[in-house]
Design a protein around this nucleic acid. Sequence first.
DNA 1: GCCTGATTGAACACTTGTGTTCAGTTTCAG
DNA 2: CTGAAACTGAACACAAGTGTTCAATCAGGC
Lengths: 204, 204
Amino acid sequence: MESLNPTQRRIHQAAFRLFAERGTSQVNILDLAQEAGVARGTVYSNIDSMESLFEAVASHLAKEMHERVNKSFNSLSDPAQRLANGIRLFIRRAHEDSQWGAFIHKFAMSNASLREMFSSQATTDLLSGLSSGRYTFEKEQLLSVLTLISSSVLGSIFLVLEGHRTWRESGSDTAELVLRALGVSPEEARALATTELPVLPSLD
Amino acid sequence: MESLNPTQRRIHQAAFRLFAERGTSQVNILDLAQEAGVARGTVYSNIDSMESLFEAVASHLAKEMHERVNKSFNSLSDPAQRLANGIRLFIRRAHEDSQWGAFIHKFAMSNASLREMFSSQATTDLLSGLSSGRYTFEKEQLLSVLTLISSSVLGSIFLVLEGHRTWRESGSDTAELVLRALGVSPEEARALATTELPVLPSLD
DNA sequence: GCCTGATTGAACACTTGTGTTCAGTTTCAG
DNA sequence: CTGAAACTGAACACAAGTGTTCAATCAGGC
């Protein structure tokens, strides 16, 4: 958190890679030191514990993605288009940065920050789309809808990581299916799910 | 596999419980022996390795559930009703046996037998429903549809395990949303998702 | 060029797990 | 009763990781 020095940054980046590739329980201090190109003692004097390191990495990732997606949404007002783009932005990023994808896929369900990233992203648009009549589901179903969306995105990321489908196919299929589930007409769902997808803005 | 003696059965059942509660990497031989009410040496002389034990437990679970769901489907011919029931049978079982639910939730994505259980269950009905015009999606989207279904079910199981929704709500919501995604009309989707759900047959 | 703080890496004492062996039981079918 | 098979549990020898300490070295700012 609160501004890392260069050594801490290297350790956090190394941790990100190792967590993504192996999962939390398979990363030890020695591996981490080597991956960061640093001595074992340096790791101990720069982190409190593996748990807090993991938490810091996960919440940094969640925050970063949340802000970039939000930035990309500045120009979009239609909740259905925002949802379709959000879904595809996540899936495309998993393709472009497979370590990011692997990290999200492994931990999105179990980590609070990452879960929050998914749900806060979608909840506002879901509610506004609901009250504007764009979607047709009951508001008691909100939690189920959120779950459907986040799990489908994770499943789709897995598909892309495994190379079973391209991010483009998997992304537009998922967006289309989700929109249809929410009550958007098939034709419109298809259209919204296949628009040109803008580049994910960087955080200047 | 191939018929377990009583001791092996106790070990496998204990392993199931521990894997469900803690995940594979947090189960050691001593814990397993104690949970099974057996000496450490007995465990070593009854299993080859943790990995093969896990594999055996997972594939047993997959096979058992697959057969019971199939048995329950004997009387149903409508692919959409079968799908709706399948989804809800999984979610209800996770509620009735939370260790089963936890096991499935933890390992369904990473274990081949469990993934196979999900997809083989759904693929046939998806294809028949597609050719009979009950569903409206492209057959190139089959993999995405399968992924949407299995991940939603897993997400829904998680919701139920965490106590955020009842199995009944979560199950019918998920079935309804999935059917709508596949092109079933909202009214019909709702109806199919809220029928009385038969008891899961036992394997005599 | 010197000072100071950061980094190095080896050494330490621990802890927890593994897989094996084996003499002393139980257990139960014949 | 009586074997044979299975189970017990303690004792080994390892392996791999943890977290700490500390003298030596490095590197950058003043």
